[in-house]
């Protein structure tokens, strides 16, 4: 009853959006599709929601084939496109009513499912959707995608452009929906949100890099990782790039994430090298890799 995807390919003319993608989402799972812009996330969503037809491969959603049973799929999935796509000139309540009606249901019938989310925007139910804040819009869009009690929920970058507090709230809502037995496929470019999923697929340029639980993916990081900081970030990066033993570096907040070609690493000589480059306040300490580190490593 989840989602199965096997050997799905899709290209737009010369550009390959998805090449031979296969993975399964188990029923009731909160599955994350993590990748940068242009990785093919939206194309995959559109294929699964029957808006696009794949060039090759099969896929099923909630047990229905995306080609042959597309009508059943449209009855049993909720889709929240990346762009806010509700009627801006209708009120919150009218939007919700509209989607309930075209799914052949009413707000009352499935109220318990959307209740948690809807109560937060209910005070503004007579306000036009276009006048809502970003976070409110997302909540309304989620309510509209849920109003017909879907078995599978597709959320395409639901938190892009939403403030950190609303993002956190949004993910809490997803967790609650998951408990009600809804399978959720969510895409995001934010690596920190990936850790909140049951399993994630890292996707880049139409290829799946890795599929596993967030913890497992992190543990696949091949080398010990170090946080390095110094008084001059620019010089630090410059110096490390030119260092003969550098395996990988990339800036990570106030630190630089660094891995070394040698095993074990010779911290003292690295420090001497950096001091020789004119850097002060040098700190080198071991740190835990994140999903972002893994992604950067896999994407190399």
């Amino acid at each position: 009853m989840g989602i199965t995807i096997s050997n799905i390919s899709k290209s737009y003319g010369e550009i390959t959006a998805l090449s031979d993608i296969s993975f399964d989402v188990k029923p009731g799972e909160l599955f994350g599709l993590i990748g940068p812009d242009g990785a093919g996330k939206t194309t995959l969503f559109r294929i699964l929601t029957t808006l696009l037809i794949a060039d090759h491969g099969q896929a099923t959603v909630a047990g229905y084939d995306v080609l042959n049973d597309y009508k059943s799929i449209r009855n049993s999935v909720g889709y929240m496109p990346g762009r806010f796509s509700l009627y801006q000139d209708l009120t919150v309540e009218e939007n919700l009513n509209f989607f309930a009606t075209i799914f052949g249901t009413t707000i009352e019938e499935n109220y318990d499912l959307v209740k948690d989310i809807y109560v937060q925007i209910e005070p503004f139910k007579n306000r036009r959707a276009g006048k809502l804040s970003g976070g409110m819009k997302q909540k309304l869009a989620l309510s509209c995608a849920l109003i017909h009690k879907p078995k599978v929920l597709f959320l395409d970058e639901p938190t892009t452009g939403v403030d950190p507090v609303s993002r956190k709230e949004f993910w809490e809502m997803l967790k609650r929906l998951q408990k009600k037995g809804i399978t959720i496929l969510v895409s995001t470019p934010y690596m920190d949100e990936a850790a909140l999923c049951d399993r994630i697929a890292l996707i880049q340029d139409g290829n799946i890099l890795e599929i596993d639980t967030p913890n497992a993916i992190v543990s696949h990081f091949p080398k010990p990782l170090y946080n390095i900081s110094a008084h001059n970030m620019y010089n630090l990066i410059e110096s490390l790039t030119n260092y003969e033993h550098t395996y990988s570096i990339f800036p990570f907040g106030e630190f630089v994430h660094y891995t070394d070609k040698r095993h074990p690493i010779d911290k003292a000589s690295l420090k001497t090298y950096l001091e020789f480059q004119g850097l002060t306040d040098i700190k080198i300490e071991k740190t835990q890799p994140t999903i972002e580190d893994t992604f950067m490593e896999l994407a190399k």
Partner: peptide
């Protein structure tokens, strides 16, 4: 243009 059609097309309408 405003994207609502994408949402409508996923419904069984």
């Amino acid at each position: 243009e405003i994207g609502t059609l994408e949402q409508i097309n996923v419904t069984p309408i």
